[in-house]
Design a protein around this nucleic acid. Sequence first.
DNA 1: CGGTCCTTTGAGTCTGTTCAAACAGCGTGG
DNA 2: CCACGCTGTTTGAACAGACTCAAAGGACCG
Lengths: 259, 259
Amino acid sequence: MAKLDEAGGCFACGSKICRFSRQNGSHSKRRTINLRRGERLEACRDGCIKLWTIVSGTAAITTNLRDGRRQISGIERTGSTICGPMAHEDSTTWLEALEPTEICETDFSEDMAMLQNDPAFMQVLFGVIHERLEAANRHLTTLGRLDSTERVTLFLAEMAATADKPGPVNLPMNREEIADYLGLNTETVSRILSRLRKAGLFKFLTRTEFVVLDPEAVARRLPVRVARRPRTLFATDDTSADPGSCPVPYPLPQPSEQT
Amino acid sequence: MAKLDEAGGCFACGSKICRFSRQNGSHSKRRTINLRRGERLEACRDGCIKLWTIVSGTAAITTNLRDGRRQISGIERTGSTICGPMAHEDSTTWLEALEPTEICETDFSEDMAMLQNDPAFMQVLFGVIHERLEAANRHLTTLGRLDSTERVTLFLAEMAATADKPGPVNLPMNREEIADYLGLNTETVSRILSRLRKAGLFKFLTRTEFVVLDPEAVARRLPVRVARRPRTLFATDDTSADPGSCPVPYPLPQPSEQT
DNA sequence: CGGTCCTTTGAGTCTGTTCAAACAGCGTGG
DNA sequence: CCACGCTGTTTGAACAGACTCAAAGGACCG
């Protein structure tokens, strides 16, 4: 058995999903993958179920249309879990590391027949996918109804809000990747970043590191609230595991506010 | 007990979810709701879990930003099931009927403690939410990377592909609703519809009924494949229930093609 | 027949894209 | 150490697509 922390995840990846993987015997299906920037994980094809949890780093869920256009549908950061089957029939989708990224992969393909009868597992799986749906809907609205300035502003605010550590925010993406996430193009992103910098909202220390100078002004410019990091799957460092919150390893998401 | 059809759904709504609702005793939590155009179902607030299955008609999942901008994140048609907790902290989201719509509501709030230990139920729940995530990601790419002509073309093609019955396609939305779905504005939608009509791709019988004249040309103009109706939850009319496909009521979606 | 609501069409404006060029950072090799 | 080239970024000018504002046209209903 792998060591489990108090919150029910293993120390390797902090996720609450990997504890369902086989730990002993020849079928141990869990492994750690280290990706360098640009390296990809493709969704496997025939009927396998893999889950990836970001242990550290940042990765993009990327879709390519057949004529080369690209859309990043999600930026996944430390602690978030991606559920395998992401390939559409037609366009290609994969997970791509934006910086050196450590991923805990659990392959449930062989165990699926058993696990789909395990309610605890199904609850975790539901939680994972529900979180992604929420994020997708938020981003949908961003692309449909916010103008380019609002998109970039929201993007920076969310990168700041989901940062691992306090202090200057790490921005492990180039202009083209930001553009592909926001449905814009490189030059537009660059122009808007310059404008936001001149407006005194953000300060760029380097091209990949910035500080939010005026959070109130940022919030005032946005017609939506900035999404915070989802309820922490992680029982990281000091904040030692939310104590005995619920009997199941991952609570079914409910429409409650926990502002 | 309610009558079950061969596929495991009840006759009332055809969904495979409602069979988990209590059928007898005082707690029967299933009801049929008839909405007229414009009427809404709000996601309930405090910790309740409701699922809505569209028995007939069309409804839109609609989000309002605080400054009045509106985004329709999904068009839900006969057979699709919506999972309750859709409200963000900030903006308001609801389900709105676009035409007279019959909805089968199942409220699992009281049964949740029990049902979340029922793997069959969790599998269905997973299936429901997974289907919505797929749709959300497709639409995300549409909004991020397709131009207005492509969006409208794709929209019409998908309305045709998901229509209940063959023959002229029913389009139960006005121009503003189409615009809110596609991230455009009313006039743009109208202009593009005119252009597509003149190009001989579609023919409008009335303002809310059209025919796809040239499906090949439509497909050629699009950089993505047109999404078809998801694997039929329904064992409707003649096609009597896909025979013994899998032992569980709803198969776990797998990254398999079934073109 | 008149009124209302939705749609269509036009003219002008603005936002974001395209194309092009200059610039900055950085590693390599002389 | 500096020159060079590569890559990604910034900025500008011209263009195009989508939006705004406005007005006319249709459909429907009392």
